[in-house]
Nucleic acid binder design. Structure first.
Lengths: 339, 339
DNA sequence: TAAAATTACGAAATCGGTTTCGTGTTAACA
DNA sequence: TGTTAACACGAAACCGATTTCGTAATTTTA
């Protein structure tokens, strides 16, 4: 990289001190009009740009926000990061992003890198491995260092920080309720292992809706997908039972369920209704299109970053963790059209 | 944020100088064993972490790479950024990401922010508005500042920098050739306006394949989608002509084409074959699944970042711009099964 | 005309590290 | 015993800015 022009260069060239240059460039009243004009003209001509690193060091703030996501090639998370960027940008912040790839180890490393002063605050959605291990010491470390932290979607209850979550119980309830209203009675649930708390919460909503309709949840038609094995095979098993609807806790499971149903000659939505989660492109463009719970990722990201910036810029305030719950909407499409 | 512990603190507490602390922490032979142990123990106990900003300022490098993408909620670009992150991580670099949202103005702003010293180099895929305007002065500015720059996918020929592109002509050729081999003769092309150069290149491949089969390209069945108007309506027009295949230059256009075909009672692939670009989830999960050209976004990202880091770390070398062309693969699925 | 106020600028500290060079003390050697 | 070398550490410069405070020169006021 070319040697950049600095205040020192300007000072030397024009025979003034660096303080004068600095002041002249910010149009200080302390400097005479002629001197200011000389300096500004020179700076302009040589395309002077103040060095951000120097400013960050001096001001003790970077105007950068760290983001750690479990993955990025994923409709929900890419939508969230869009929301984060949008909110950050409006307040003059930039984004440093890392991916944990669902790995505990990488999450810890990322957190270490980001917490060495490169960012003013951090937004995280916890890796599934971490949720499984239940080792959250890297997060408590952050808290004790008082680095502003916001968790979203996959959060840890025990960590005292701001959080933004989807109303997963309500969403599970809404989805199930929709199927029940549709006249479905044997609703299979394709969910995640219990350590992924969003799956657990969605299941609670599912069970609540069933109970209210006096239907007993049947463990035979509930499957907790182990992503290390064949997803399709695990879903297939549910189809061996008598079911008239499938509630999948994400888009992929919904799409796979649909494939299986079609293969078995089941008509959608006549023979079987399907409802998914995460309103991504698959749901929209598959045929029949899939009814989903829209998670409002953009809003989540935006709220998370606003919460974080609020925390960064008002650190004098006493600390009371906030939790924002984003309600989710049902997007009815072809896969659950009324019978 | 809590006041972090610095070298100065340690020095004062232990009654030594900052130089001694600095040396002790890097296990310098200049410092006696006992002093080193005292200092290291203290630093450890109080969880001392060197301030990255200070190091960056001193070393005149940030170990951060700036990335500007036109969008992120998009399978191809999210895959690319995954590749970039992966490559960067391996070399100890972090990522600062910005989105231009296809806007010229935002691209210029992003570039300005990143080029003030916050990053060691920049990777960009150019915004469509910029390609349309043909105003590339912000990029030539970067070049004259000698900030390492790599363009990928949507590149600008006139800018002298490293580039990573897909073999779009070859890909368009492959796709068309596949349809021709399939016995299709009336192949519609759903593409982008000409200023998006990838669209133009893919079309060249399409035309080349047609010519080799002695088929004349028919402008009536070629549509350049204007995304400001209804995409579906524009595609519909093509279906009013007699066609037996559709080659769409991206996944969305392919999925929309499939919807229209189905609505018109056409069977896929019997009555009409469909082929898309970008091997995303839609193509994989739609039914029938869609044959696509896989762009290898991960590889692109990785190559781009490797090129950039190479440039950053060997700036003494004379500058000869490199261009890496990534070949793309045809992924044959149900939508083009042989007649 | 002397005192006070204003103007225009510079010296130096600061942010948090690294690194070069110098120096006092002790040990080894002739 | 005088010289030299090794050892252990500190002072100060530096990276690129900002900002406080001091001050000489000029202008205003009494």
């Amino acid at each position: 990289m070319k040697q950049k022009i600095t205040i020192k260069t300007i000072a030397k060239e024009l025979g003034v001190s660096t303080s004068t240059v600095s002041k002249a460039l910010k149009d200080s009243h302390e400097i005479s009009k002629e001197t200011k004009e000389r300096i500004q003209a020179y700076a302009n001509h040589y395309n002077y740009k103040p060095n951000h690193l120097a400013l960050q060091l001096r001001n003790q703030k970077t105007k950068v926000i760290g983001v750690i996501l479990p993955k990025i090639v994923h409709h929900f998370f890419s939508t969230v990061i869009k929301g984060i960027e949008d909110g950050a940008n409006k307040k003059g912040y930039n984004l440093m992003v890392c991916f944990s790839n669902e790995s505990y180890k990488k999450e810890v490393e990322n957190l270490k890198v980001l917490s060495n002063g490169s960012v003013d605050g951090i937004i995280v959605s916890v890796a599934s491995e971490t949720l499984k291990n239940k080792d959250f010491s890297h997060f408590s470390g952050l808290i004790s260092e008082e680095i502003p932290l916001v968790l979203f979607d996959r959060v840890i209850n025990d960590i005292l920080c701001d959080k933004v979550v989807v109303d997963d119980v309500g969403a599970g309830y809404k989805a199930t309720q929709h199927l029940l209203e549709n006249g479905r009675k044997k609703i299979a649930l394709i969910t995640t292992p219990d350590h992924v708390n969003v799956g657990l919460l969605r299941r609670q909503g599912y069970e609540k809706a069933l109970i209210e309709s006096y239907i007993k949840a049947d463990n035979d038609i509930i499957v907790k997908i182990d992503e290390k094995q064949s997803i399709t095979q695990q879903i297939e098993k549910v189809f061996d039972h008598d079911i008239d609807a499938v509630f999948a806790v994400n888009e992929i499971y919904a799409a796979k369920s649909m494939r299986i149903a079609k293969k078995r000659g089941l008509k959608i939505p006549e023979d079987i209704a399907i409802i998914g989660f995460t309103d991504g492109l698959i749901s929209e463009y598959s045929s029949p299109s899939i009814t989903t719970i829209a998670q409002h990722g953009f809003t989540m990201g935006k709220q998370a970053v606003e919460l974080l910036i609020e925390r960064i810029e008002n650190e004098t305030e006493e600390f009371k963790p906030k939790k924002i719950v984003i309600s989710s909407d049902l997007k009815v499409r072809e896969s659950t059209k009324t019978l």
